[in-house]
């Protein structure tokens, strides 16, 4: 199926077919990174701007490497909140960049909806690299890619997402993507971290980690982001870790094939113990590798690429 969208803003409004198109394209790009010369000319002559309004090491590195392996010209713009308050608006900043005839903007922003707001106002393609608590589509796509590689068909599979669901864009994108592909999603957290009416997004809610992981094919452990909270939502990290942290004790009776995921960066000893993060169930580093292929695919598709065979592009 051909890709027709100018932007990648969310998974909510993608079809299962569009998600599959991205994942299949990613699979072709995965191979590029196994070569000695890890570069294809797919985006030669295209300019990509990574516009980050929120600090991020991982996502930005992943996008930047993906862009460079596709031969794009890359500009990184990091806007600190202090210069935002000095006055230039997001739209002014981006319209200035667009005056250079750039092709793609990868944006991370702390305010939900900002990528859509941009996409409506500019001609360049917009890729959402995480907006507030709304969506983080490339993270969910790489999670789903990893699950598909390990589990095959996702229809009927049980996936548990554990942690700060209320503030997590990773959770929302995963929920949309996984449910569209037929997986059964359970979100697991204390009630204070479960946003209202989330059941209407097609998920089950559990407050018991042991029960949820007992029937899960995979568990995605979200980072606890205390800095996002404006009020106390649970008594202490110690208590959170006891109730919802994944450690060897909780995982010891689970089948070998049960996958443990984490979008990073990990708070070792809080939501996940070091032993579990590095243990046999963990696919955390695979997620990182797969993320590169997924981001190459997304950049390639929104920039107008249609060929699913990067080999044919030469090296």
């Amino acid at each position: 199926m051909a890709w027709t969208k100018k932007d990648l803003l969310d998974l909510e409004y993608l079809t299962a077919e569009e998600i599959t198109t991205i994942l299949d394209t990613a699979r072709s790009f995965y191979e590029v990174s196994t070569r000695t010369i890890k570069k294809v000319p797919a985006l030669r002559g295209k300019t990509v701007v990574n516009l980050f309004y929120e600090a991020s090491t991982r996502t930005r590195a992943s996008f930047e490497i993906a862009e460079k392996r596709l031969s794009a010209d890359v500009l990184n713009v990091n806007v600190s909140v202090s210069s935002v308050t000095k006055g230039e608006t997001l739209l002014d900043t981006v319209k200035n960049l667009c005056a250079y005839k750039i092709d793609v903007i990868v944006i991370r922003h702390s305010v939900s909806g900002s990528p859509l707001y941009l996409a409506r106002n500019i001609e360049a393609s917009v890729i959402n690299a995480g907006d507030g608590a709304h969506e983080h589509p490339t993270q969910a796509l790489l999670d789903i890619y990893t699950l598909r590689e390990r589990l095959g068909e996702l229809k009927g599979r049980q996936i548990a997402i554990v942690g700060d669901i209320a503030h997590s864009r990773v959770a929302r994108s995963n929920i949309w993507g996984l449910t569209k592909l037929g997986a059964k999603v359970t979100v697991v957290a204390p009630p204070t971290l479960v946003p209202r009416d989330i059941e209407r997004m097609g998920v089950a809610v559990s407050h018991r980690l042991d029960e949820a992981i007992a029937r899960a094919d995979a568990v995605n452990m979200l980072r606890i982001q205390r800095e996002r909270e404006k009020q106390t939502l649970f008594p202490s990290l110690r208590e959170y870790s006891k109730l919802f942290g994944l450690d060897e004790e909780k995982i010891k009776d689970l089948p070998e094939g049960m996958l443990v995921m984490h979008p990073g960066p990990i708070n070792r000893g809080v939501e996940i113990s070091g032993a579990v993060a590095d243990g046999p169930h963990s696919v955390i580093l695979e997620q990182v590798t797969n993320g590169l292929a997924v981001r190459m695919a997304v950049l390639f598709l929104v920039a107008g690429g249609t060929s699913l065979h990067p080999e044919s592009l030469g090296t």
Partner: peptide
């Protein structure tokens, strides 16, 4: 608590802070 829209299904889906 710094909410920007009504708290409910839509604030959850949109990732906007809810006003209960």
């Amino acid at each position: 608590n710094f909410g920007v829209m009504n708290e409910g299904f839509y604030s959850t889906k949109l990732g906007l802070r809810g006003i209960p």
